[in-house]
Nucleic acid binder design. Structure first.
Length: 267
DNA sequence: ACGTCCTCCTGTTCGC
DNA sequence: TGCGAACAGGAGGACG
């Protein structure tokens, strides 16, 4: 499930592959991926050239001449860069036919991903991007503290709230809580200003390290899509034993999300 | 305005 | 063994 580091890795890889290529045409085989009118999506983007690829939180932003489209991979979305001869997989819902003969295909097993057309120069002003909190590296501890210190919601759930900080998903929320040695169910109201600062530092550290891992392992796009090495760095998420004290990791649902923590180290 | 619950999907895992 | 049910999960919408 792509979170900020995976999306950043996809952004960098895709930029190397399709920058300055023109979209000759688009084929859409599953309409619901498109937020809005699929025919308008095709008509508007056809003939425009990819000028940049950006990222905001977990969203990719494809900047074209006049328009942009915002892409969220949700759980399983992947972009594949393939030759037209490559047999079409049943999960490849959208094909961008590019000027240099290659195809960019959007693959999404669960069909949860979404793409939305916008104006290039106003893409940040409308939903969904306008609702996002700051990137972790730009977040100010005081602002975050103001958002969480009166809340009864568990810290781990607050970390998943994209309007507070953008880009953190379930895996990294678990890892951040472990780094802080804090119980993920601790309500926001019990987080001090100092702890908020520590939380931000932990988030930036962990995300930075994950981006480095993703970047070193991605050499190409293939049927397996993007996968990084960050799995080997995980301390609690999907782990059996605590790497610090060896205690069995507790797994339980917090606000409906799979949550992993060490019952001894995380108080 | 805020918190909570439901929905969207399909591959995988689990239980009978 | 086989098959159906439960489960996973990010974001947005409905609802109270």
């Amino acid at each position: 499930m792509p979170e900020l580091p995976e999306v950043e890795t996809v952004r960098r890889t895709l930029k190397n592959l399709i920058l300055n290529q023109k979209i000759r045409d688009i084929s859409i085989r599953y309409d619901r991926i498109i937020d809005g009118d699929p025919a308008l999506f095709i008509e508007t983007l056809k003939g425009q050239t990819v000028r940049d690829i950006g990222r905001r939180g977990k969203y990719l932003i494809f900047f074209l001449d006049k328009n942009a489209f915002i892409s969220h991979l949700r759980m399983e979305g992947k972009y594949l860069f393939v030759t037209p001869g490559q047999a079409l997989n049943k999960h490849e819902h959208i094909t961008f036919h590019l000027s240099e003969g290659m195809e960019l295909r959007y693959h999404d097993t669960r069909k949860f991903g979404r793409m939305k057309l916008t104006e290039a120069d106003a893409c940040y002003l409308a939903a969904p991007l306008c609702n996002l909190g700051p990137e972790p590296w730009l977040a100010k501890a005081d602002d975050i503290y103001q958002r969480i210190h009166k809340s009864s919601i568990p810290l781990k759930t607050l970390l998943l709230d994209q309007t507070i900080i953008a880009g953190i998903g379930n895996i990294y929320a678990n890892e951040i809580c472990f780094r802080m040695r804090i119980n993920p169910e601790t309500p926001g109201s019990r987080i001090s200003r100092k702890r908020t600062q520590e939380m931000l530092e932990a988030a930036k550290d962990i995300l930075d390290a994950a981006i480095v891992q993703g970047g070193t392992t991605i050499h190409s796009f293939d049927a397996n899509g993007i996968s990084g090495l960050f799995q080997s760095e995980l301390q609690v998420h999907m782990q059996k034993a605590c790497p610090v004290c060896g205690t069995e990791i507790t797994k339980k649902a917090v606000h409906g999300r799979g949550t992993y923590f060490c019952p001894i180290c995380q108080k």
